[in-house]
Nucleic acid binder design. Sequence first.
DNA 1: CGTAGTAACGAGAATGGTTCTCATTTTCAT
DNA 2: ATGAAAATGAGAACCATTCTCGTTACTACG
Lengths: 139, 139
Amino acid sequence: MSWSEEATGRLNEAGFRAGAARRQVIELLEGERCAVTALEIDRRLPAVGRASVYRTLEQLEQLGLINRVDVGGEVAAFERNDPGGHHHHMVCVRCGRLVPFEDPGLEREIHRVGEGADFEVVSHDVLLRGVCPRCGEAG
Amino acid sequence: MSWSEEATGRLNEAGFRAGAARRQVIELLEGERCAVTALEIDRRLPAVGRASVYRTLEQLEQLGLINRVDVGGEVAAFERNDPGGHHHHMVCVRCGRLVPFEDPGLEREIHRVGEGADFEVVSHDVLLRGVCPRCGEAG
DNA sequence: CGTAGTAACGAGAATGGTTCTCATTTTCAT
DNA sequence: ATGAAAATGAGAACCATTCTCGTTACTACG
């Protein structure tokens, strides 16, 4: 079952009705492997109102179907929560490019830290900041 | 040498003049062990203009004297960069409380990931989200 | 010690992402 | 089909942040 089918099903179970705006936002997210900002979604879906974009993102986030990604504090970005594709991000401090990576060893270590903490940890984020190969060459 | 003395010295070297607004912001940060938002600083320093708060934070960040901390995408928070006290954060998803922690094993693992990456990594952040002990009791 | 040049400052306007309001449209159980 | 209630979109409101600009204050120099 694809992520968009999973998402539609979970929304139905949660008591939401069908609607064109939400369907389009979900389809767009389905086609993105990494994070997209709310405004980019809005720009790419001229037929969908801003309010609906934000509403849909909020609903999807609450159901755990997408994750919010903070890379610089300015704008929030979102990506679908694919259980098999858990990853983190490197962001280029020069050009802002966002590159996903995964690392099982790092995951194990984070899990260990969570076990030993007072908090009941439910999720985590790792962000590496640096210079991407393209900008590194450029000097 | 205290952090505020270090900061003042570095600002002098960088060619900045002395000024009352910047001094007050630095003194406030000196007294905070963890992250504070720009608006909280503004509220706590009525004699200092908003513009000066943001200007000072920008200058301190560029000199590497403070770090920006993103915990939820809404507002940016800042804390002094204490070389001996590198740490990360756990944020409570219910009450928003921010708690610092450090873990050498995790640092090693992040360093290893950075070595193997295409990026030339210059800094990193880790954020654990969960329920703090206080909120966990409350149900 | 005065002075001039210039950086630092504060008030308030502008900006831009996000959230809210509300009238209209669409869904869906009946 | 029909009607109650959810979903939607346009635009206003909101709020953190940045910008503008006239004023203040620091400091190098005389």
